[in-house]
Amino acid sequence: MSGATTAAAGASTATGTRRPFRFGRWFRATGWRHGVGVVMSIFAIFPLLYVLSASLNPSGTLISANALFSIFDFGSYIELFDLPQQPYAAWYGNTLVIGITTSVCTVFLGAMAAYSFSRMRFVGRRVGLLAVLLVQMFPQLLAVVAIFLLLNGISDIFPAIGLDSQIGLIMVYLGGALGVNTYLMYGFFNTVPTSIDEAAKIDGAGHARIFFSIILRLVAPILAVVGLLSFIGTTNEFVIASIVLIEPEKQTLAVGLYQFVSDEFSKNYSIFAAGAVLAALPVMALFLYLQKYIVSGLTAGSVK
């Protein structure tokens, strides 16, 4: 009898110490964060859903797409590949070739430059780092006129890398991206202990073997981040690509898709939205594949 009374008293005591749920207290502590998260999610997802809905609406106007997913018609996706004057398939291939080539070359050249600044000591090292940082203060848009005149002059001597050349456009992208990516990689390379390099040198390894066999594997997160950012920036770039590439067969998606909404009397937002949805697939696939490297790659180099 006494045992049962003690158990009941303990249960009542435990029940009495449990705080009742109060919405106001929960909202002040953590609830408002959930509210902010929901609002930001809606703010970010709604434009994507609207574009997807517009791509499935064959009317060709954005006003008729106000009712989300009221019509499901894939005619715009089929028509997108049946327009000879707008070769969407060629634009898609050009974008992938230019984006992949630029990102791979950016990662490779930036990694070599960052390794040199991080591991080697030479005259002008500090000045070079400051110059790399200062150059990035000026956007590449300021050099559009100079880039056009330079490529136009190169076309007379080396047409393969001049105006209306995809190789020339890749070289322009590489020149504009090396500075900021080198500085970003430099901070990450500094987090790798130099004792690893010293141990490899004792075993007879040179700088090239250390760089390709050891360092590149340890800095894989920042390589993935730089490659992803370079690919996204290249595929979304419009101004320089529209100036350098002239022939429709050589243009990229950003330049080619603009033709569907640039004409005053022949705008077709449905085909434009369908092209935009398909253009986003490679970026989404690459982002999901490299997602595990993104957080560590962006934050690890910031402590140096």
Rank of each mutant, 00 (worst) to 15 (best):
F74H: 12
T61Q: 12
G93E: 02
E79L: 09
N66E: 10
A89H: 07
T30L: 12
I45H: 13
G93V: 02
D73N: 15
H34Q: 06
L48N: 04
T95P: 00
D73L: 10
P84Y: 03
S59R: 15
Y77R: 09
T61M: 10
P87A: 15
Y92H: 06
H34P: 00
L52G: 02
L49T: 00
I78K: 09
F43A: 14
L52C: 07
V38Y: 13
S59H: 13
G37W: 12
R28W: 10
N66S: 07
A65G: 08
G75L: 06
I78Q: 06
T61P: 05
G60C: 06
W26E: 12
W91A: 00
P47N: 08
N66R: 12
G24L: 08
W32H: 08
I71N: 10
L49E: 00
A89K: 05
I45V: 15
W26T: 12
A89G: 06
G24A: 14
E79M: 09
V38F: 13
F69G: 09
F74L: 12
P58I: 02
A90H: 04
W91G: 01
M40F: 08
A65V: 03
S76E: 03
M40S: 10
A29D: 13
G31W: 09
V36W: 03
E79R: 10
Y92M: 11
M40R: 03
S55I: 01
Y92Q: 05
F27S: 09
P84I: 03
P84H: 02
F23A: 15
L68A: 06
F72V: 14
V38D: 07
V39F: 12
W91E: 01
P87L: 14
F43K: 07
S41C: 09
H34F: 10
I71R: 11
G37K: 07
A67N: 14
Y77G: 06
S41P: 00
R25F: 13
L56K: 00
T30Y: 13
